[in-house]
Design a protein around this nucleic acid. Structure first.
Lengths: 221, 221
DNA sequence: ACTTTTCTTTTTGTATACAAAATTATTGGG
DNA sequence: CCCAATAATTTTGTATACAAAAAGAAAAGT
């Protein structure tokens, strides 16, 4: 459960430690840093042009957040998960996503509706264009609008964290243009369920959507 | 979402940074460090007999986990919550706890049953004795047995984290021996629901239990 | 008396050095 | 050739010094 208060970025120059932390999170999410990869303090310090101190801080923070795992005796590694662990994460994620859908359906504002629809429009556009990178980004943004619609930053953050951590694994199921279009189309069903404003319909809709997503993900991991 | 991998404690001497981190977590959970209190790097370094470096690391990790919040420009403070925020946390917690109860009911092992019953026995003992400190500890332990019964470390950890963070606020509702006994007795209803092995019964039982707990907590905060 | 400016102190973030622990490479013996 | 011992190298954790930023206190101005 990470800190959800605003970071300093808007008010002050971001510290080196935070820059390194965010850069690593981005790389992990983008699949550029693969699970199991060892992170090297000295190498990172050299690469970011800073001393080991801020690098150590960034690595330590990421370890505290579970994004990295410590080696048995030394080193920090990008967290990797067995299929067993992945399925456990998905089970937890399943519950959280269903809860988010339920709460979102209960307190859907016009603004939230609009944001969800706009995000879905972006998904459809990227899928039609067969633009995988854009679709990955749009897909994540779409789900974030649902979390935001809950009006509850705490549960939204948990859902977001799960999404970030499983991102590289889930991304593997989006290979062809057909994959993208299928995913984007399934969003529409989900939206209808949430916009029904019926808690159980929304919750069930999200469970179905995520079950499908997880099954596909486990197929390719 | 914190790191749930085992720490080094069992294999090696714990680093100073981890010692400080754990000590602070304990003090916050015990209500010795109150919400809103500012943590002073230099003072803590002096108190723990180490340099600022491991203290900074501990504070940074706790900030990454949301246990502490950064001041606008400087300082780290024990996170405090308005009633509004508390109720949002409880809403999220409500969902997580209900999910834990549902999953636990679905996969209840004999060992898990035994552990839950033992923990409840400890609760009853502490309550009858009017021993507030012991009850607080036993109550937390009781809930942890339910999380463990889910067999899913990820959702268990989220639930545990919420429990840790709201601990000081929830503890305020346990003032008299009657409070303790009432709480311990409500566990029995909850146990029956979970031991029914019916998902919906367990889920609803937990929702009721937590709703009651939250209402009481908001009354005294 | 109040406000602004200047000075001082405190806090923060970082670089660097050092020591200890862990790992790897090399050497010598069977 | 294999294994054990030793040496060298790398990694980790920490202490300390330094500079910059922020806050507080004191002095000067209106």
């Amino acid at each position: 459960m990470a800190n959800i208060q605003a970071t300093d970025a808007g008010k002050h120059k971001m510290s080196a430690a935070h820059r390194v932390e965010h850069a690593l999170i981005e790389e992990i999410s983008a699949g550029e840093l693969l699970p199991g990869v060892r992170l090297d303090e000295v190498g990172l310090a050299h690469r970011f042009g800073v001393s080991r101190t801020p690098v150590r801080e960034a690595l330590s923070r990421l370890t505290a957040q579970g994004v990295l795992v410590p080696g048995e005796k030394r080193g920090a590694f990008v967290a990797e998960y067995s299929r067993e662990q992945l399925s456990q994460i998905f089970e937890a994620m399943h519950e959280i996503e269903a809860a988010c859908a339920r709460i979102a359906a209960q307190r859907l504002s016009l603004l939230a509706r609009s944001e969800i629809e706009t995000a879905q429009g972006d998904c459809m556009k990227a899928a039609e264009a067969g633009d995988r990178v854009a679709y990955l980004r749009a897909n994540e943004a779409f789900h974030l609008t649902i979390y935001k619609a809950t009006g509850n930053p705490y549960i939204a953050e948990i859902a977001s964290e799960f999404r970030r951590r499983t991102g590289p694994f889930r991304a593997k199921k989006f290979q062809t243009r057909e994959d993208l279009i299928g995913s984007a189309q399934s969003h529409q069903t989900l939206i209808d369920d949430i916009f029904s404003e019926d808690s159980n319909t929304a919750s069930k809709g999200m469970r179905d959507h995520m079950t499908n997503s997880f099954m596909q993900t486990l197929r390719v991991n």
